[in-house]
């Protein structure tokens, strides 16, 4: 029995079993491989996506339980225009191997949506579940602050 989802603004249908974690529907069913598998137990954050703007671990959300529109890293930018967070990530040259970065960016996006000017402590609290084995944390922190300033400027402007 087909399940219908809205992913990055597009309605998609899948025959995957409803207990299948959203992660694998995105990757194996829809070919949206920007969302990564890291642990399968919500311990690393590599699979972070948004459901109705809320950052969730896609490895833990069953397809049948998805309660709203899904946004993945592929849906964050608009055409060739990168989202402010992605632009900040480029300015700070954050990524090393890059494998965790989709999840880091999706997690940071929720943080900035809720806390437009986060402190270091707020960043630490919000990003603690996202592991990076290359150790890009300093750059992540700097990029989040930078994106927050850019977004603030946009609002002010």
């Amino acid at each position: 029995m087909a399940v219908t989802l809205v992913v990055n603004g597009t309605r998609r249908e899948t025959e995957f079993a409803p207990e299948t974690p959203l992660l694998w529907v995105l990757r194996d069913g829809f070919g949206l491989t920007g969302t990564k598998f890291g642990c399968g137990v919500a311990a690393c954050g590599a699979c972070t996506v948004h459901i109705n703007g809320e950052a969730v671990r896609a490895c833990q959300i069953a397809l049948g339980d998805v309660w709203g529109d899904v946004t993945t890293i592929e849906g964050l930018s608009t055409g060739d225009t990168l989202a402010p967070l992605q632009q900040a990530w480029v300015r700070h040259q954050v990524a090393q191997c890059g494998y965790c970065q989709s999840g880091q960016i999706m997690q940071a996006a929720q943080l900035l949506a809720q806390t437009p000017a986060p402190t270091d402590d707020e960043i630490d609290a919000a990003m603690a579940g996202n592991l990076c084995r290359c150790g890009t944390y300093s750059a992540i922190r700097a990029a989040i602050h930078d994106a927050a300033r850019a977004l603030d400027g946009r609002r002010a402007g």
């Binding site: 949206l32 990168l82 480029v90 890059g98 960016i105």
Partner: peptide, 11 residues
């Protein structure tokens, strides 16, 4: 860098 912040980098 760009490929890695847009999810386009292929592993």
């Amino acid at each position: 860098m760009r490929a890695k912040v847009t999810g386009q980098a292929q592993f």
